[in-house]
Design a protein around this nucleic acid. Sequence first.
RNA 1: GCACCCAUAGCUCAGCAGGAUAGAGCGUCGGAUUCCUAAUCCGAAGGCCACAGGUUCGAAUCCUGUUGGGUGCACCA
Length: 575
Amino acid sequence: MTLFSRFANHINAALDALVARGELAADLSRTAISVEPPRDASHGDIATNAAMVLAKPAKTNPRALAELLVAELAKLDEVEEASVAGPGFINMRVADESWRQELALIHAQAQDYGRSAAGKGIRVNVEYVSANPTGPMHVGHCRGAVVGDALAALLEFAGHDVVREYYVNDAGAQVDVLARSAHVRYRQALGEDVGEIPEGLYPGDYLKPVGQALAAEYGDQFVGQPESAWLLTFRSFAVEKMLELIRSDLAKLGIHHDIFSSEAELQAAGKPAAAEAWLREQGLVYDGVLEAPKGETPDDWEPVELPLFRSTQFGDDQDRPIKKSDGSWTYFGADLAYHYQKAQSADELIDIWGADHAGTVKRIKAAVAALTDGKTRFDVKLVQMVRLLKNGEPFKMSKRAGNFVTLADVVDEVGKDAVRFTMLTRKADAQMDFDFAKVIEASRDNPVFYVQYAHARIASLKRRVADAGIVLVDPAPSRLSDDELPLIKLMAQFPRIVDAAASAREPHRIAFYLGDIAAAFHAWWNMGNDKPEARVVRADDPELTATRLYLADAIGQIIRNGMALMGVTALEEMN
RNA sequence: GCACCCAUAGCUCAGCAGGAUAGAGCGUCGGAUUCCUAAUCCGAAGGCCACAGGUUCGAAUCCUGUUGGGUGCACCA
């Protein structure tokens, strides 16, 4: 058990003791109690607000309750000192030995240090990317892909049962456009001069291989045929090819989904109709006419009666159509059924969306609340736009066809690790600049480099020791100095950072924590520059060398564990 | 017009389910290089946490309003 979780137990046990003696009511909620390092290290190692949180419901004053708790906590061997501070904080100083044991625990648990059971095996479905299957991944998809993937890994590490899902929008008008575009490329592959790709179709070169594959598969049987003869065939063929393309793009980023769910299959299986029928029974779908949109009214606006979902009942601004006037499902109508389907096999749902879809959050939340009777927790995580820069200047790609920057271009340019790490150095809901020059820059202000450099330095220590022919003996943690214990204290926070990041659904916290770890390590390392006796590699003292290497190695382990959550590979050497 | 997101040092951003004296990098200024990778480190200066109210023992954090920026706003996805 990690140190912080053990102290959480200590505090609970102390509260139990007060309850047993009748000094505290038994039924008080303890969920708001924190166990964390105080902001100012001079206050001690661990602080808790337990007395302040419980004082009011216990009808006592915080300091009095704190005194009682302090008396209990001070009995513990690993508590050197416990005191009441300020309005009722309890500060504790933890025995050095406990920190040394935590260091041993990091080594013992290695890649599992930080893994927790906090998620209690709750089944969480994380849906991310879900880009339309009409072309290669665009750079705009990049951030959501990385955030979703890192969040999934984080939740898994924190004890959730995670499913990574991709929703394939293969039923709308955009895939008909894809099929028509593929048909042009098909004719081209058969030798026809198709000239410019007609307006409104997808012009990208990436459809040429699709055309060729279609030609190889079907010969010329669909040339000169009406659309009805080939549309469905071409559509599913092209969609399948686009999914292959997307999967390969995602693989470049190290992303692999467990499930690809097809909107077309969902509709074919009658799921939207079933959802509609059920919602009509509940009175949550009715036939009605929407008001004209406020602001700029489109010229071609005309009132039409449509089946509407009563999302206003759940806080949306207006009710939302689930079918179009031609009888086909709207995106929302199908999406509603899709979320219902996901909720069948998960306890919690998370969608990662681009911020441009912010306007549709309320309706889908309303739908999930209606369909699951409010029982399924459902979060939509909005990922803000990324501005592409090169040396501070807006970046423009000079690609002939399409003129867009693909995800593959970005990964090829700066590498998977730099892309992933950089995408996680901002809160997802804050806008971000992505500067091609900066993310590969080898300097302090590039967190990717800075953290990698720390890890590489640790690896170099091991090589140095081997090169120096030092025969390592068992480490002697008692020889760790006062400059070195704080490093353990920082490492010991990793498990609680993981839990906090998971429950807040904020993977960026891992990146910032790794930056802190790296900074502490670099500072420690540099002490060896100022004072040779502070160096790790000490040919004159194999035991001290082994001890410091033991410490450094643990730091490397923490960095690797954090990087693994981010999907980034830790480097052994900088080049 | 409406909804959602954002507003913290000159710049770019953290701030951990409301906690103690709001932090880091860059930039500026001053230091460390016979060094295990100085690609690093140490120190200093720099703040009305956009503004105004409210909630309570306690607010950058929660609520309301205002201002300023971003995104979106019919059957598109």
